Deep mutational scan, measured.
Amino acid sequence: TTVHVNGVTYHFPNPEEAKKFVDRVVKEAGLTVEVKGNQWDVE
């Protein structure tokens, strides 16, 4: 699973890890998340 955060790419072994990361980032920074298949874009 690939997560893009403001142009930076993070790779995770599974969607659960990616979701935990995204949830944390979104809570801390108040960002928006767009999910496209296995790819997350966070802005």
Results as ranks from 00 to 15, higher is better:
Thr1Met: 08
Thr1Phe: 13
Thr1Asp: 03
Thr1Gly: 03
Thr1Asn: 06
Thr2Trp: 13
Thr2Leu: 08
Thr2Tyr: 13
Thr2Ile: 13
Thr2Met: 08
Val3Glu: 00
Val3Arg: 00
Val3His: 00
His4Lys: 14
His4Ser: 14
His4Phe: 13
His4Glu: 09
His4Ala: 08
His4Leu: 14
His4Ile: 15
Val5Glu: 01
Val5Arg: 02
Val5Ile: 13
Val5Lys: 01
Val5Ser: 03
Val5Asp: 00
Val5Leu: 10
Val5Gln: 02
Asn6His: 06
Asn6Gly: 09
Asn6Ser: 05
Asn6Arg: 03
Asn6Ile: 02
Asn6Thr: 02
Gly7Asn: 04
Gly7Gln: 02
Gly7Phe: 02
Gly7Lys: 02
Gly7Val: 00
Gly7Thr: 02
Gly7Trp: 01
Gly7His: 03
Val8Phe: 08
Val8Gly: 03
Val8His: 08
Val8Asp: 05
Val8Glu: 09
Val8Cys: 11
Val8Tyr: 09
Val8Thr: 08
Thr9Ile: 13
Thr9Val: 12
Thr9Arg: 07
Thr9Tyr: 11
Thr9His: 06
Thr9Glu: 11
Tyr10Pro: 01
Tyr10Met: 05
Tyr10Val: 03
Tyr10Ser: 01
His11Met: 06
His11Lys: 05
His11Gly: 02
His11Trp: 14
His11Ala: 04
His11Phe: 13
Phe12Glu: 00
Phe12Lys: 00
Phe12Gly: 00
Phe12Arg: 00
Phe12Ile: 00
Phe12Leu: 01
Phe12Thr: 00
Phe12Pro: 01
Phe12Val: 00
Phe12Asp: 01
Pro13Arg: 09
Pro13Gln: 12
Asn14Met: 01
Asn14Pro: 00
Pro15Lys: 10
Pro15Ala: 13
Pro15Gln: 11
Pro15Thr: 11
Glu16Trp: 11
Glu16Gly: 04
Glu16Lys: 04
Glu16Tyr: 08
Glu16Pro: 00
Glu16Thr: 06
Glu16Phe: 06
Glu16Gln: 07
Glu17Ser: 06
Glu17Tyr: 02
Glu17Cys: 05
Glu17Ile: 04
Glu17Gln: 05
Ala18Lys: 01
Ala18Cys: 05
Ala18Gly: 01
Ala18Tyr: 02
Ala18Phe: 03
Ala18Arg: 00
Lys19Gly: 05
Lys19Ala: 09
Lys19Cys: 07
Lys19Ile: 07
Lys19Glu: 09
Lys20Tyr: 05
Lys20Val: 07
Lys20Ile: 09
Lys20Arg: 08
Lys20Trp: 05
Phe21Met: 01
Phe21Glu: 01
Phe21Trp: 06
Phe21Leu: 02
Phe21Gln: 00
Phe21Gly: 00
Phe21Lys: 00
Val22Ile: 12
Val22Gln: 03
Val22Ser: 03
Val22Lys: 04
Val22Glu: 04
Val22Arg: 03
Asp23Met: 03
Asp23Val: 02
Asp23Lys: 02
Asp23Ile: 03
Asp23Asn: 04
Arg24Val: 10
Arg24Ala: 13
Arg24Glu: 13
Arg24Gln: 13
Arg24Leu: 13
Arg24Trp: 15
Val25His: 05
Val25Leu: 15
Val25Glu: 04
Val25Gln: 05
Val26Pro: 04
Val26Thr: 12
Val26Asp: 06
Val26Gly: 09
Val26Gln: 12
Val26His: 09
Lys27Val: 07
Lys27Leu: 12
Lys27Cys: 07
Lys27Pro: 04
Lys27Arg: 08
Lys27Ser: 10
Lys27Glu: 08
Glu28Cys: 08
Glu28Ile: 06
Glu28Lys: 04
Glu28Asn: 05
Glu28Gly: 05
Glu28Asp: 07
Glu28Met: 04
Glu28Tyr: 06
Ala29Leu: 15
Ala29Glu: 13
Ala29Phe: 15
Ala29Thr: 14
Ala29Met: 14
Ala29Gly: 12
Gly30Trp: 05
Gly30Thr: 07
Gly30Val: 05
Gly30Asp: 08
Gly30Gln: 07
Gly30Arg: 00
Leu31Glu: 10
Leu31His: 09
Leu31Ile: 13
Leu31Val: 14
Leu31Met: 13
Leu31Tyr: 12
Leu31Asp: 10
Leu31Arg: 02
Thr32Lys: 06
Thr32Asn: 12
Thr32Glu: 13
Thr32Cys: 07
Thr32Arg: 05
Thr32Phe: 03
Thr32Ser: 11
Thr32Trp: 04
Thr32Asp: 13
Val33Ser: 13
Val33Lys: 02
Val33Leu: 08
Val33Ala: 10
Val33Pro: 07
Val33Cys: 07
Val33Gln: 06
Glu34Gln: 05
Glu34Thr: 14
Glu34Arg: 01
Glu34Met: 04
Glu34His: 06
Glu34Val: 14
Val35Arg: 00
Val35Gln: 04
Val35Cys: 09
Val35Asn: 13
Val35Tyr: 14
Val35Trp: 11
Val35Gly: 05
Lys36Trp: 15
Lys36Ser: 15
Lys36Cys: 15
Lys36Tyr: 12
Lys36Gly: 15
Lys36Thr: 15
Lys36Gln: 15
Lys36Ile: 15
Lys36Val: 15
Gly37Glu: 14
Gly37Leu: 11
Gly37Thr: 05
Gly37Asn: 11
Gly37Arg: 02
Gly37Ile: 10
Gly37Tyr: 15
Gly37Asp: 15
Asn38Val: 04
Asn38Ile: 03
Asn38Cys: 15
Asn38Thr: 06
Asn38Gln: 11
Asn38Ala: 05
Asn38His: 07
Asn38Leu: 04
Gln39Tyr: 14
Gln39Lys: 08
Gln39Arg: 09
Gln39Ser: 11
Gln39Glu: 15
Gln39Ala: 12
Gln39Cys: 15
Trp40Arg: 01
Trp40Pro: 08
Trp40Lys: 05
Trp40Tyr: 09
Trp40Met: 07
Trp40His: 10
Trp40Ile: 09
Trp40Glu: 11
Asp41Tyr: 15
Asp41Met: 14
Asp41Lys: 05
Asp41Cys: 15
Asp41Gly: 08
Asp41Asn: 12
Asp41Arg: 04
Val42Ala: 10
Val42Phe: 08
Val42Ile: 11
Val42Thr: 10
Val42Gln: 10
Glu43Arg: 08
Glu43Asn: 13
Glu43Thr: 14
Glu43Val: 15
Glu43Gly: 11
Glu43Asp: 12
Glu43His: 14
Glu43Phe: 13
Glu43Ser: 12
